[in-house]
Design a protein around this nucleic acid. Structure first.
Lengths: 128, 128
DNA sequence: CAAATAATTGACTTTTACGTAAAAGAAAGT
DNA sequence: ACTTTCTTTTACGTAAAAGTCAATTATTTG
């Protein structure tokens, strides 16, 4: 296990800029260690960055990503908190299911287009 | 079949503002008819709006949504165009598959959180 | 140790996707 | 005819998510 990652290592691995990672830190999504002023990212930070970028690809805003990350931070002890957390999990799940449905619908339409293309290609080959 | 939809009918149906629909027109995503100056939306426009909002939920930019919509506009006759279109379909499919994978991963993590919550709840019930 | 390389903060800029407000034309109800 | 209620155009504003640039400070390497 490596102890630390430098900022440029991570920008290369994930294809983002240093500005982006610092922005995520400003937003409180990650909290890398410091040696003097330079940031040292741990494996947990690296993992969080993965989660952030996943959320980003799915079109979640930073605020929404923060909600997801907060959820991951582990279930609290108190009953009321637990119920609140489970409610949030349910909400996120519903959002994700909606997105999944949207993806299926779009993929289905693309399938149609693809078939139409293939059909047209076949026609051309026969020589319309 | 209804002939036309007014702009406010559609804003109510889809929960978007008139500004949004006019913006989509400016962007060339939809082309409603006109009676004088007022817009008259046909069923095809309504369908396009559905597609646009689906893309939006998935985090596609307007430019990306335009690409998808252009794909739907039907396969062209010429061979080179057909091949280009099939390439685009493939690209979009890959983007969507990536998003789908992201969703599955996120849902899996939420499942873990949910289980942890349930376990903690059980502990509380027994009286830790 | 000097020079090159990498990292930092801070400020300003940009892009996207609309929001909002103003001014005015048209349609519909009373 | 009058007042609502829609709708339009034009134009400026804004929030989110970085990009870019400048001025410094560390670190590494020859």
């Amino acid at each position: 296990m490596r102890k630390y990652y430098t900022i440029t290592e991570l920008t290369r691995e994930f294809g983002v800029s240093t500005r982006t990672l610092r922005f995520y830190e400003d937003e409180g999504l990650i909290q890398p260690d410091r040696r003097g002023r330079t940031r040292l990212f741990r494996a947990s930070d690296r993992h969080l960055i993965k989660e952030i970028l996943r959320g980003r690809r799915l079109g979640f805003t930073i605020a929404e990503i923060r909600e997801i990350i907060d959820i991951y931070k582990g279930p609290p002890g108190e009953l009321g908190q637990l119920e609140l957390m489970m409610k949030r999990v349910k909400e996120k799940r519903e959002q994700l299911n909606q997105k999944r449905q949207d993806i299926e619908d779009t993929l289905a339409e693309l399938d149609n287009v693809d078939e139409a293309c293939l059909a047209r290609l076949a026609e051309l080959r026969v020589g319309t």
